[in-house]
């Protein structure tokens, strides 16, 4: 890993100043996405700006019809939150299935969303639940936020402060996990609520999270596992690696979608 200057700001203003102060600066939250890529020299920031000391970023708020999760909340915190378990149990269960206990103790929702790994779980939850990504300067709909492999709508000096999830009528996440890393080989979140029925897939496509319009349309008419079971997903653009080939991944998407609908009850 290349060395870097480390900054531990105590306020958002200090964090933004540090981020703007060096061309190669990056934010670090829990570090569980960033440090592994830095070890491989796939990221070589000149400066790391930690958000750990910025107050107010690790809280979970019940807003009535939605839940706001602070960007620095760990996966363990989301999984154990009474508010999340009560309002959006599918989100708590999804967080409980990320990586392993130690990864969940350190990794954060903001870090995962900003990194936008094509096999991460959170992008599927954000898109299916029609979440809003809240930053230091604006609010971005999840549909507009994720823009392909490791790409997001964030500006270079923009900081995610929270993610706001509307509470759905029902939702569930089904994942076929890589047995070693627990990253999604194919993960499908299905949600039904004020925004209609939304089906979001992670882990499968080289472009990251995507919605399956055909499944959404069918489920809007008949919300049943049988309704999605017959819908084939194209293997075009699907990832192919040691865990699964493109055609198998496409098959898994349909199976996981069916399981997610079943789990919605």
């Amino acid at each position: 890993m290349q060395d870097f200057n480390y900054h531990a700001p105590k306020s958002m203003d200090e964090a933004l100043a540090a981020l703007r102060g060096a061309e190669g600066a990056k934010l670090i939250a829990g570090g569980h996405s960033l440090l592994p890529v830095m070890k491989l020299n796939l990221a070589m920031p000149t400066d790391l700006v930690s958000l750990a000391g910025v107050p107010g970023l690790a809280e979970i708020a019940d807003d009535g019809d939605s839940v706001t999760v602070g960007a620095m909340c760990t996966h363990a915190q989301v999984a154990a939150s009474g508010v999340v378990q009560g309002r959006i149990p599918a989100l708590a269960a999804m967080a409980e299935g990320i990586g392993d206990a130690q990864v969940r103790n350190a990794g954060t929702i903001g870090g995962s969303v900003a990194h936008n790994d094509p096999a991460a779980d959170y992008p599927a939850a954000c898109v299916a639940l029609a979440a809003t990504i809240v930053t230091d300067r604006r609010e971005i709909a999840a549909d507009d936020f994720f823009q392909g492999l490791f790409a997001t709508a964030l500006a270079e000096d923009e900081v995610i402060t929270a993610v706001r999830f509307p509470a759905p009528d029902r939702a569930a996440y089904a994942k076929f996990a890589n047995p070693a890393s627990k990253y999604a080989v194919a993960g499908v979140m299905v949600a039904a609520g004020a925004d209609g029925v939304r089906v979001a897939v992670t882990g499968a496509s080289g472009d990251g999270v995507f919605r399956v319009a055909e499944m959404e349309a069918v489920l809007a008419g008949s919300f049943s596992a049988e309704a999605v079971a017959g819908i084939a997903v194209s293997s075009d653009g699907m990832l192919s690696d040691g865990a699964a080939g493109a055609e198998y991944r496409a098959h898994l998407v349909a199976v996981m979608a069916k399981r997610a609908v079943e789990a919605c009850g």
Binding site: A8, G31, H32, A101, Q102, N105, A106
Partner: peptide, 15 residues
């Protein structure tokens, strides 16, 4: 008090 993987944590993060 929480278990973490110390190979994926910077010493400066544990300051």
């Amino acid at each position: 008090g929480s278990s973490v993987k110390s190979c994926t944590c910077l010493a400066v993060q544990a300051d």
